[in-house]
């Protein structure tokens, strides 16, 4: 089956990012297709490469990046939510006249239409949040 996953919360603050990761891994292991993982609200914070959790903690952002590299996942961060929260790629940072970007490898920034399209194109849409 084809899935779109929606992640509404940031990493560490709430378990939903962890659960979404575990679910996505399990779905891939079962041979399902992940059409897209969409990050909205504080969920956009999953996509910053500047997180440095303590050495004995899990690396949530890195887990997404590695999963994307291994399975060719489409990890999409909502642009409107990202701009509010300071998640930037190089193009967007330049356009906004900002001095840095922080997007993690494997993620891309795009519009909310990508979420709606995910709902239309997928057999199932599963929401993780608070």
């Amino acid at each position: 089956m084809k899935y779109t996953i929606l992640v509404n919360e940031g990493p560490y603050q709430h378990q939903s990012a962890d659960t979404a990761l575990q679910f996505t891994r399990a779905a891939l292991e079962k041979g399902h297709e992940i059409f897209r993982v969409f990050f909205y609200h504080d969920g956009v914070n999953n996509g910053t490469r500047l997180t440095v959790p303590p050495a004995d903690d899990r690396l949530i952002q890195k887990a997404w990046t590695e999963l994307a590299e291994k399975h060719g996942l489409d990890l999409v961060i909502c642009i409107a939510a990202a701009q509010r929260r300071g998640i930037m790629d190089a193009d967007e940072a330049k356009r906004q006249g900002l001095d840095a970007n922080n997007i993690a490898p494997g993620f891309r920034i795009s519009g909310l239409g990508q979420l709606v399209e995910g709902g239309i194109q997928s057999d199932r849409l599963v929401v993780f949040g608070d």
């Binding site: 899935y3 679910f23 891994r25 399990a26 779905a27 079962k30 399902h32 599963v126």
Partner: peptide
């Protein structure tokens, strides 16, 4: 988690 996927 595999059972969770099956439920969906």
């Amino acid at each position: 988690y595999a059972g969770f996927v099956d439920l969906t």
